[in-house]
Write a protein that binds this DNA or RNA. Structure first.
Lengths: 162, 162
DNA sequence: AATTCCATTGTATATTTATTCAAGCGCGGT
DNA sequence: ACCGCGCTTGAATAAATATACAATGGAATT
């Protein structure tokens, strides 16, 4: 193998240069990056760059690679450890009471809790639920008929009582 | 070529579903997306998806694809109508699904789409519709009775499907 | 020093994405 | 009607990216 250049922190060194190059000029392929690095005396293969890219958590967008951090793509940047909260957790935090009215279920929550609770409920994707609408402290759950509403209400109560 | 489904809004429809799927679950390859879409009745090839991805300005990062800006809707950049948008246009942009529940119709939309869709629906002033309530991604349409609700649901579906 | 372990890399290859080319279809003008 | 134009798509293929595997070398351990 060819490593005639440096000695110990070869890799971290290279990662830094990559970061620098990327913030400076747009790069649209790993091979292009490879050529740019070569001009700076760093000689690696595309395979290595692929691994580097992964390690640097880079995003590839319409205008080339970018760092997940500073510029674009805040969308899903810093959300790798928390899953969306479960319905049980949400009800535990915000849920207050459950009432049924024909094919609807009215779910009372703490102030500001309706929105997140509804989102969690949507995520569960229960077949009896046609949809939900959330205000500030009340979630309206629409079911396909009264029977299903009863079922849903019971299930919500169960979770709530835990 | 197989296009037995709709006629002209096929594509925009698909783009919306793609957005929805992406915000819902992580997707790490176009082929995976293709399979997910197929389960929803949308059958296209990877080539088409590649083109869609470009059009939606998606970023591919360590955790799969993500939307570049919070939620585009800038799909057609060069649109200068100053008329209030029609219901058909709104549904085309935001509409996802229609469900009936007794005398109500629940209309699922993209995030942030419920409000404008409901406004457009109000503007149409359909006699069967007693009123609408919009949350963030769900519109509840109250009809005078179940029969009318069925009628409204059917009409909405027709518009939605093209 | 010999041995083991681990990190790093290149080569070759598999997988994924973009593009080329040629249909198919609707629309508007002649 | 016919023709041409533009948009959308699929099939095939090129280009780009990720990975399996083996080799190397350095550090730690015995």
């Amino acid at each position: 193998m060819l490593c005639r250049k440096g000695k110990r922190t070869m890799k971290t060194q290279r990662l830094n240069v990559i970061r620098e190059v990327l913030t400076g000029t747009p790069v649209t392929s790993q091979d292009e990056l490879r050529r740019k690095l070569r001009r700076r005396g760093i000689h690696v293969t595309q395979a290595t760059l692929s691994r580097d890219m992964h390690e640097l958590q880079l995003f590839k967008g319409p205008h080339g690679y970018s760092l997940a951090n500073g510029n674009g793509t805040k969308t899903s940047a810093a959300e790798e450890d928390d899953q969306p909260p479960t319905l049980a957790e949400m009800l535990d935090s915000f849920g207050l009471r459950v009432k049924q009215a024909m094919n609807q279920v009215v779910l009372g929550t703490l102030k500001g809790g309706a929105q997140p609770v509804a989102a969690a409920l949507d995520r569960e994707d229960w077949p009896e639920v046609a949809g939900t609408i959330a205000g500030d402290d009340t979630v309206l759950v629409i079911c396909t008929d009264a029977r299903q509403a009863g079922e849903v209400a019971a299930r919500l109560r169960t979770i709530l009582q835990g």
